[in-house]
Amino acid sequence: MVNEWLLRLATWLDGQQWSTDLHESYYMYNWVESTHVLTLMVFLGLLLAIDLRMLGLAFTGTPASQIADRLTPPMLAGFVVMVISGLVLFYSIPVRTTQSVWFRIKVVLLVAAGINALLFRNAMKRSVDSWDTDSLPPARIRWGAGISIGLWVGVVSTGRMIAYDWFDCHKEMPDFMYWAAGCVVELASIETAGAMEE
């Protein structure tokens, strides 16, 4: 049901002239993709700087709250442009991206990273006064920072994998992968074949 709805939306986006023009424009598409990578560098680079402080591995002589407060605004600026350019990239190739298992894992990891960031920030704000100047923050803060890095590495990794066609719908693969990638047509064929066998 959800897969059918997503495919309908993606097909509608794919039918728009702007989507085709963007995909076929050598310079525009590549500039958008370059912007996505450059802002990923700004966002992830500053996030790593904050998380490394929370792990007690960088800027240990500076209060943790100061690192977080000062680096968060430019990090968020990078995040906003990264998300906008990411949406534009999705708009330019909507059908294949919607049916990419890597893109789907990436979205799940993005949501998980967002939830972790909220929980981490709240936990930090509640307790930071008691350990702000410690070079090694408490274990729960280090766990939050470690999970944050792990999730974002996962986001980068799955984002990179979208370019590979290993699990594209037209490929021969286990039924589970058709389901995970939301291959509506292929799943319907499997169902029809199963019904005919019965």
Binding site: V37, G45, L48, A49, I67, P74, V153, S157, R160
Partner: peptide, 30 residues
């Protein structure tokens, strides 16, 4: 593909630290 991820994360680390260092020199950060 995994090595590409390492490359991208390393670029981000490099870019982030260069940014912090240079924005500090410009008196814009920390």
């Amino acid at each position: 593909a995994m090595v590409q991820t390492v490359h991208l994360v390393s670029i981000a680390l490099l870019g982030g630290m260069v940014l912090v260092s240079d924005l500090r020199l410009l008196n814009l950060l920390l």
